[in-house]
Design a protein around this nucleic acid. Structure first.
Lengths: 171, 171
DNA sequence: AAAATATGTCAACATGGCTGACGTAATTAC
DNA sequence: GTAATTACGTCAGCCATGTTGACATATTTT
C-alpha cells in the first residue's frame, strides 16, 4: 500500500467551513455582550463583579456541588476561583459543608441571602431571554438549546447536558 | 459589601419572567466559553489576545469603518481600544486612512496580513458553528440569528441588524 | 474666531485571568 | 500502617484588558 495518495484528512484543520458565518459570530458577540452586562448594576451595589455572579449562578443551580466541579465548569484555576469564593463566603452568600462520604470535599451551598441575590441577578437576564423568545416560534427554545449545546466542545457535551438539564443537582 | 439589604422596591422593569431560563443561561455561558477560546492558540503565536481578535473581526467585516463605530460596537473606551489598535497597526495588520469627506476620521482597513490572520482565526470558529448547525433543521440558522438579534439591547437592534446583515460595509 | 467633533495619548487603577510554590486534611493503595 | 494520592486552600507576583480623568491636535461646523 505504498504511494497511495490517500485523501488525507488533514491533521490540523480537517474540515473547511463551506460557508461564512460572520453574521452569527457578530450576533453572538453582541447578544452575549448585552446579556452579560445586565446584572452589572446590581452587582456593583454589593461590590461584586461578573466572576461572583458566575459562581453564584452555578452554586444555586447545583446546591452541594464540589469545588472541583465548579472549577471544571468555569474553566479557571482554583486560585482565581478562591479569590471570589472567599468574598462570597465572608459576605454570607455561600456556605461550605464537608462531604458526608468524603470529608475532604467542601460542598458549596448558597445561603438564603445568596439565593435572594442570585434571583435578583437572574431577573433582568430572564426578562431579556423571555423577550427574545417571545417573537419566535414556540419550538425555537429547543432549537436554541440544541444549538448552544452543540457549540460546546464535543468531549464535554455529555457533562454539560447532564449538568444543565438536571439543573439543581450537585453534579 | 455596601448596601446589602436593598429593598426590592426599586424595580425598574416591572415585568417578572414567568419561566426559569437557567438552562439557556448556563448553555449560553458554556457555548460562548468554548467558542471564544477557539482562536486562543493562534493568537498566542502572534502575542495577541482576544481583544485584538475582536478588533480584527470587525475591521475585516467592515473595511473602512470609523474608530467611533468600532468603539460603539465593542462598547469599550477609546483608551482600551487604543492599546490593542496600536499593536495591530505597528504589527502591520491594520492600516488607517484619513476619511475623504471628513479628514479627521482615520478609517480602519485590514492589510493583507490582517485579512489572512482574520481568516485563520475564523476557521475554528466557523467549523464549530457548522458542526453545531449540522444536526439541526435547515431553518435553525435563521431562528438562531433571530434569537441572538432579539437578545441585543432593544435600542440597538436596528444598528446591529444593519451592521451584521450588511456585512463588509464601513458602517 | 469660537465651539464642537474625531481621534490619540499619558497616567493611574480595578477586575479577573494566569503560574509556581507550598500546606493540610482525608482517602486510597501497597 | 505507612506512603501516595486527592481535594482544597493560600501566598505572591504577573498579565490582559477593562476603567476614569486630563489633556493635545487636527478638522469641521457654527
Amino acid at each position: 500500500m505504498a504511494d497511495v495518495i490517500t485523501p488525507s484528512r488533514e491533521r490540523i484543520a480537517p474540515i473547511f467551513p463551506k460557508e461564512r458565518y460572520d453574521d452569527l459570530m457578530s450576533l453572538l458577540f453582541f447578544a452575549y455582550r448585552d446579556f452579560i452586562s445586565d446584572p452589572d448594576a446590581i452587582l456593583a451595589r454589593y461590590e461584586f463583579g461578573r466572576a461572583h455572579h458566575r459562581v453564584l449562578h452555578f452554586v444555586t443551580c447545583h446546591p452541594g456541588m464540589r469545588v472541583a466541579d465548579l472549577l471544571d465548569m468555569l474553566k479557571i484555576t482554583k486560585q482565581s476561583l478562591g479569590r471570589v469564593l472567599k468574598q462570597l463566603i465572608t459576605g454570607g452568600y455561600i456556605e461550605q459543608q464537608p462531604g458526608e462520604t468524603d470529608r475532604r470535599e467542601r460542598l458549596l451551598f448558597a445561603t438564603s441571602e445568596g439565593e435572594a441575590l442570585a434571583a435578583r441577578l437572574r431577573e433582568p437576564q430572564s426578562r431579556r431571554i423571555e423577550r427574545a423568545l417571545a417573537r419566535l416560534e414556540p419550538d425555537a427554545r429547543d432549537t436554541i438549546a440544541d444549538f448552544l449545546l452543540n457549540m460546546v466542545n464535543e468531549a464535554e457535551q455529555g457533562d454539560v447536558a447532564r449538568r444543565v438539564f438536571e439543573e439543581r443537582t450537585s453534579a
